[in-house]
Amino acid sequence: MFKKILFATSATEACDHAARVAFDMAQRYNAHIDVFHVLGIPSRGYSQVVVDVKTGDEVALDDNYRDLVKEEIRTYYDHQIAKTKNWSIDVAIGLPHREILRIARLMKPDMIVMGGSTGASGSYAHKKIVTGSTFQRVAKAAHCPVLVINRPAGSFWGGFSNVVFGTDFSNAADTAFEFAFKLVKELNCDFHIFHALDITGFQMNNLHTQDYIEDQIQKAGRQLRFKYISKMENFKDYAMEVWEGIPFVEIVKYAREKHADLIVMAYNTKKTDEKDASIGSVAEQVILRANCPVISINRSVGK
């Protein structure tokens, strides 16, 4: 299931928790991990002078500098690399999301692992209200699942055995379901299929009766069973639930209640501009807030 992991990192404290999960996965599932770092952005097209993304300094790029950065990354992750059998370190210059997608096309990993937004060195994305724009762009276009660990608290599980799949019944959710179900079967996990009924209209004076809400919950429950039970054949370790509320809050709460060590969701947003996406898709808000790693899957995964 996980034979090739692409770990995209800023090699700063902001990615430490993502590193914990990425290396743990590599060791646990005997996978190859490629530690990938975009070291700088060219100051102008094809220029050999780049702006170092960590320091903000302009540096002249040559093989020595690349080797120096690789060595720095090697040292930074020394503790984890020492316990990992198959690993490599790659560095590139360019815009981070483009380079991550470029190497993903070449390497064809089973999974891209990322931390949240790095922003200024040392800052954490969970202190922001939006996910990083690099993540948004990678999640939208990647042809493989993208696993994001935004909060340090989400990195203390070790392996996957209790998976929550959040669905909005969209086409992208169908793709996410296929991946989630394959994962739970291969890793012998408990599978929690969950839908959050959006009743946020409540805040805009669109007050529903409790009967109406409960009718909708029952309807969504039927939809869950109709859509997914037939796809699971003889698999029995699943549970299905519908909760009403604010969707991202309910998914985070449900995962916490079930002690989930992984959430799988479709990534639906078409907007990648930080300003437009700031209210965000449900998946982005879950990524920001979850107490466990979150895998987001767009419609192009596996195609």
Binding site: R151, P152, A153, S155, F156, N291
Partner: peptide, 10 residues
Amino acid sequence: GLSGNKYAVS
């Protein structure tokens, strides 16, 4: 001793 431990076991 790990950072973020406050939220690890809710």
